[in-house]
Deep mutational scan, measured.
Amino acid sequence: SFQYVPVQLQGGAPWGFTLKGGLEHCEPLTVSKIEDGGKAALSQKMRTGDELVNINGTPLYGSRQEALILIKGSFRILKLIVRRRN
């Protein structure tokens, strides 16, 4: 089963996490790295392996390109929903 975790990061880029996968690579869009001391790490809500399913209220369909555009369009606040295996 899965758990959906809301994450809100503040203060602008860099957000402190790296993505891998996506439709382009025929795999889920997941968090591959969280930078020590970065905003994602400080939130204590994101983990490597989390799947990104929503950015700023926009549902994602797995495209890494789409996710990067939405993330780049976030100035002060980035709201994410990640899906994690229980």
Score class of each variant (00 low, 15 high):
Met46Asp: 02
Gln65Asn: 13
Ser63Cys: 09
Lys72Asn: 13
Gly37Pro: 01
Glu27Ile: 05
Glu66Asn: 11
Asp50Gly: 03
Ile77Pro: 04
Glu24Arg: 07
Gln8Gly: 04
Tyr61Asp: 15
Leu52Phe: 01
Gly38Asn: 02
Tyr4His: 07
Lys45Pro: 03
Ile34Leu: 10
Asp36His: 11
Glu24Ala: 06
Val31Pro: 05
Tyr61Arg: 15
Lys33Gln: 14
Ala41Asp: 11
Phe17Glu: 04
Ala13Ile: 07
Gln8Arg: 09
Glu27Arg: 10
Met46Ala: 03
Gly11Pro: 03
Arg76Thr: 13
Lys45Thr: 10
Trp15Ala: 05
Gly57Glu: 08
Asn54Ile: 15
Gln8Phe: 15
Ser63Lys: 09
Lys33Asn: 14
Pro28Ile: 08
Gly11Thr: 04
Gly11Val: 00
Gly73Cys: 10
Phe2Met: 08
Ser43Tyr: 05
Gly57Ser: 06
Lys79Tyr: 07
Tyr4Trp: 04
Thr30Asp: 01
Ala67Ser: 05
Leu19Met: 07
Gly62Tyr: 00
Lys72Pro: 03
Lys79Phe: 07
Leu19Cys: 03
Gly21Glu: 04
Pro6Cys: 14
Gly62Asn: 05
Ser74Glu: 10
Leu68Ser: 14
Leu9Asn: 04
Val5Tyr: 11
Lys79Ser: 12
Gly12Met: 02
Glu66Met: 08
Thr58Lys: 12
Ala40Phe: 03
Ala41Pro: 04
Leu78Trp: 04
Glu66Ser: 09
Ile55Thr: 01
Arg47Gln: 13
Gly62Lys: 01
Lys39Pro: 14
Leu19Val: 10
Arg76Met: 08
Ala13Pro: 10
Leu80Arg: 02
Gly21Asp: 01
Arg85Ile: 08
Thr48Ala: 12
Lys33Pro: 02
Gly49Ser: 01
Asp50Thr: 03
Arg47Asn: 07
Leu70Tyr: 09
Met46Thr: 04
Ala40Tyr: 05
Glu27Lys: 10
Leu68His: 14
Thr58Glu: 09
Val5Glu: 13
Gly38Cys: 05
Leu19Pro: 07
Arg64Tyr: 11
Lys20Ser: 14
Ser1Gly: 12
Arg85Phe: 07
Asp36Trp: 09
Arg83His: 00
Leu68Ala: 13
Val82Asp: 03
Gly11His: 03
Gly49Thr: 03
Asp36Met: 12
Asn86Lys: 15
Ile69Asn: 15
Phe75Thr: 15
Ser74Ala: 10
Ser43Gln: 06
Gly37Ile: 02
Gly37Asp: 09
Trp15Cys: 03
Leu52Val: 14
His25Asp: 15
Gly62Ser: 06
Ser74Lys: 06
Met46Gln: 04
Asn56Tyr: 08
Gly21Trp: 01
Lys72Val: 04
Asn86Glu: 12
Leu9Trp: 00
Ile69Gln: 15
